[in-house]
Computed example of a mutant assay.
Amino acid sequence: MSPVMIETNAIADIRATITENRLISSDISIITLECPEIAAAAKPGNFVNIKVSESTQPLLRRPFSIHNVRGSAIDIMVKSIGSGTAIFSNSVAGTSMMVLGPLGNSFNTSGQNFDTAILLSGGVGTAPMLFLERALALDQKTVINLVGGRTKEDLIAPGLTNLMFATDDGSAGFRGNVVELLESVLPTLETKGGLKVFACGPNPMLKALAGCCRQHHIPCELSLESVMGCGIGICYGCSVEINTPDGSTRTLLLCKEGPVIDAELFVL
């Protein structure tokens, strides 16, 4: 069983300015923040913790995957689902806010044990995938994106290439969930140097994917979602149970030893 991937970045807590807020669906935006220190240190899979308001409402910062890095700026994909994300989603260019990051570990895109990468995501789980795809391309890996949603309106894939879709109702692409789509395409894949899966999305999807990859002996990394108050291991709000090599379980903090973990560690 592979160990948890742990990595230390140069973490900055800086005041960043929004330079663009682009609506890509009825409730999802791509927000660009000018923050050179974070952009320079960021790796695919890292996240930032953002204080979306100068007031105490909301009190806690909100965690967001880094969607992309463009020069000295980072892009964040935001879905408006509560008071904090609504404030962030409605922020206009010129607004500044405190941004802590880059936080957490990152996907492992290097290595000679695979030449084809499947990026599997559901809903806003596509948030870290553009940054990841571009890093894999630099490592000369072939990338296939599998994106799932309940209906075609739930499919989110800005900037991603080589796409295959799955919808529960069959309104776009494969009829079924995205893990079932993976099962259907595995027999058709021809890889000379091996296959690896990278995923982000809701926990039930990740649980099904972890089981699938174990069954087919495919290496897989999962980016888990959790409530994170501090982002630096103080509040213990992001604790999860993982498997250990001796068959027991232990607790880790996603903000410190995640959010990316080996799928072998995921408790099914």
Rank of each mutant, 00 (worst) to 15 (best):
P58A: 14
S106K: 14
S121M: 15
D169T: 02
R134E: 11
I50F: 09
V178F: 05
F266E: 15
V267N: 14
T167E: 00
S83A: 05
H217T: 09
G194S: 04
C230S: 07
D75K: 08
L182C: 15
A42H: 05
T244L: 02
V69N: 04
L160C: 02
H216K: 13
R134T: 01
P158C: 01
G71C: 05
D262L: 04
G149D: 05
E54H: 13
L130R: 14
T19V: 15
A157I: 04
L155W: 07
A210Q: 11
V124G: 05
S72M: 12
G211C: 11
A10Y: 06
L253W: 01
I50G: 14
M97D: 14
I50D: 12
D27G: 12
P219V: 03
N145C: 10
V267D: 14
P245G: 03
T109A: 14
M205K: 03
Q57P: 00
R62G: 01
F64G: 01
S83M: 08
L103Q: 11
M97Q: 15
N162D: 10
S65H: 03
P102K: 13
M164I: 08
T142P: 01
V52D: 12
S106V: 06
N90T: 08
I234D: 10
A166R: 04
T8A: 13
I24A: 08
G111T: 10
